[in-house]
Amino acid sequence: MKNALIVDDTKFMRNMLKSILTKKGIDIVAEASNGKEAVEKYKEFKPDLITMDIIMPEVDGIQAVKEIIKIDPDAKIIMCSAMGQQALVIEAIQSGAKDFVIKPFQPARVWEAIDRTFQES
C-alpha cells in the first residue's frame, strides 16, 4: 500500500484530500500545515507521495518542494493550486514537482494525477 503526506494550511482542505486519497487506498502517514513542517515530516516518514499546497504561512509550498527535491530528486510531489495560479504551478514544476491538481478538487482528477505520477517510476 502506498502512503502519503498531506501538506495544507487549512484543516478543511487536508480533510478533503484525506478522504479522496483514502478512497484510492492510500494511507495517510502524516500531515503538515506549512512548508517547514512538510520538510521535517518528509525526512521523518519518507512517504511515497506528497500533496503540497502552494500558499502557506512561513515557508511556502514551492520552497518546500525545492528542499524536498534536494533530499530526494525522485520525490513524488503533487501541487494543489487554486484557479489563476498558473505561474506558481509552473515554478513548482520547474523546482521538481511532478504534477498538480486544482482546487476545488475533483476526486477523479486527483486520482488520475496520482496514477500517472506513479507510472513514472
Binding site: 493550486s81 484557479m83 498558473q86 504551478v89 514544476i93
Partner: peptide
Amino acid sequence: VFKNVRVFMVNR
C-alpha cells in the same frame, strides 16, 4: 483548466 501548465509539462 491550466492548459499552459500542461504545455509546460509536455515541454519538460
